[in-house]
Design a protein around this nucleic acid. Sequence first.
DNA 1: AATGAATGAGCCTTCATTCAT
DNA 2: AATGAATGAAGGCTCATTCAT
Lengths: 205, 205, 205, 205
Amino acid sequence: MPPIPELEAIRKAQILEAGLKTIAERGCANVTMDDICRTAGLSKGGLAHYYRSKYELFKSVFQEFFDRIFQRGRDTMARVDTPLEKVLSFDWLYDVDNPDMAVGYPLLLDFMAISVHNADYREIFHDWIGNWVTLLSGALAEGIDRGDFTDLDPVATARTISAIYQGVAIRWYMDPSTHSTEWAITSFQNAIRRLLAPHMKTGTP
Amino acid sequence: MPPIPELEAIRKAQILEAGLKTIAERGCANVTMDDICRTAGLSKGGLAHYYRSKYELFKSVFQEFFDRIFQRGRDTMARVDTPLEKVLSFDWLYDVDNPDMAVGYPLLLDFMAISVHNADYREIFHDWIGNWVTLLSGALAEGIDRGDFTDLDPVATARTISAIYQGVAIRWYMDPSTHSTEWAITSFQNAIRRLLAPHMKTGTP
Amino acid sequence: MPPIPELEAIRKAQILEAGLKTIAERGCANVTMDDICRTAGLSKGGLAHYYRSKYELFKSVFQEFFDRIFQRGRDTMARVDTPLEKVLSFDWLYDVDNPDMAVGYPLLLDFMAISVHNADYREIFHDWIGNWVTLLSGALAEGIDRGDFTDLDPVATARTISAIYQGVAIRWYMDPSTHSTEWAITSFQNAIRRLLAPHMKTGTP
Amino acid sequence: MPPIPELEAIRKAQILEAGLKTIAERGCANVTMDDICRTAGLSKGGLAHYYRSKYELFKSVFQEFFDRIFQRGRDTMARVDTPLEKVLSFDWLYDVDNPDMAVGYPLLLDFMAISVHNADYREIFHDWIGNWVTLLSGALAEGIDRGDFTDLDPVATARTISAIYQGVAIRWYMDPSTHSTEWAITSFQNAIRRLLAPHMKTGTP
DNA sequence: AATGAATGAGCCTTCATTCAT
DNA sequence: AATGAATGAAGGCTCATTCAT
């Protein structure tokens, strides 16, 4: 009989948000439970009530992060019409002012580093990539259906596109002094357009 | 008058190798000085004799790693003739049997994650990327000189090529179940060839 | 809502007492945090909960010690009537059976030695001496007011008296085989009485 | 067959000087063997050749220091004529420019603090004090012989005088902001003169 | 539901000492 | 005589986790 039935959801969201924030700020290896408690405005015991261990909490934080980012990608893609526009609809990845991005890159890089030595994490990553590939290959398949593209393996191509996005994004984030936002956007658009060019019906830019 | 004049160099190499190995195996955050001592076959104090602190040691390990990988890239590129072949000379990145690669990806991912919160590391990364870009843009410039390519910004393009390599490589390494070596090699070759296609004199691809 | 509201005060007192005891027993340089934990009946982490570091703890221990000793001096002085009796009211300094003294000399000597290289400690010492001088010069000033003494700089004289007490006390404590309690008490009484003699109205000594 | 017969003496002096210097600078508890090696211009092994252990070295350093200071006291006293002048011949204790004093107070305070927990050191201290007392009581006895003083226990008085010197000196050294050299010299002269006054024949300054 | 006091294992670092050369 | 590489014990501090209230 919880006083407020949604209390658990509220608290968990509060904690996840604190996790997101602190991990982004200090990095997984440097975040302590105390950091998270402080940021969440809860005590150690209070936090323990909702997450059995640091490990469980961190997994949830990353899960939450990956869900959120993917959600954004799907929503943004849904707002444009043509398949080509859809696969090119990710300039938001290079938006310095987007708070999700400020948190996203630190988390993604931390997450990947940990994944190397952790099967649980690797699986989350696998699923996430799977989602992106499904989203992108869906757009490509739609393009084939509509007759925009011909002769193209949607899944393999979607993987390549996704990898290009990520490769460019990491560079842009990690070394901004020599990788401007302009470079990043031109790069991914160019690379993806050129990749698809051989498979496009004339007149589609 | 040390018994062996090169003792310091030998020991440092021994320690760096141990660092490389243990970091790759367990991840930066999980490696202890004891792990490294044990692997290097030295005592705690012996190690301290050569590296003042864990941080100094780790920086040296990463420096060593970056040097080594870049060396390999430069050497491999030097073995092929045409500029196009040169920029495509990186299939060794996708060689599972290459011990440098088995160590390289864990290290690279750890390194990037730490760099987010560490200016020293970020600078090492910046320099390393600079080296790659110089190497690749050199090949592109040579291509322009030779007349293979026209109308192409060597540096910006080199950055894009390098980012594509890295994006594809990380996918390949992190999620091999759905990113085969075949996919990786096809992906990068395709993406880079297509990227350069508009700038190539007829008959080259 | 701690179980006992004064828990923090209790624990801190417990820890300070353990610090006092162990430092007196083994000396600052030889006391480990484990020693103090064991003596205080707390774990390492428990102690860390109340004192951030060994240094902070030691500073508090000394502060506590100095407060306690000064308190005793003030109280003892308050129990006698005449100004001369007041400035001579410190035979308790030479009481072997006083547990505060058993702890006090080891601490004082350790403290002074550390102060030489530590400004924080030096300031504590400065303040403590300031307190004694104020106390003693107050008594002297009262003596002047009452007409017991004439023609005497209360502060400079108080400093001299205080220095004599300490000089005699250290000898007495450090080399008891040749500095008996009798010698100590006779010495300080004699030295101080003689020092004041020229400034005393007839009939007082 | 040492190459130079006096080499051992030279090296030992070199090491002791380094010990004196480093202990005075950093304090016993903070001086490392490396500090001393560096200051002495010798290697660890070289130092070990002459002093079995840190403890042995430190004991010798203190011995050396005590000898040196006492020597100075005796020499200075020998330069004045009357017994009263002799017992008052210690203003050099309050000479900030005297390098022996700059080293002396840190060492003395460190030494006394350690002595509390160390019988070897305590014995050295005991002997040193014994020397001073002998020196001072000798002067007093001479005064009695000469007829300058009457009715005075030379040894007990010498102890008191010595304790006054030390008490004033420690204050002067430890808290110079409120204990000027002027105060120190006036204090000890006054206190000692007054102490002796009742025992002095008329007309002896 | 929530607090925060308490635990104790683990880690990096320091440093006196040893010893082969 | 002298070097300095190597050892390894010891210590202070951090921090995830537990638990009584």
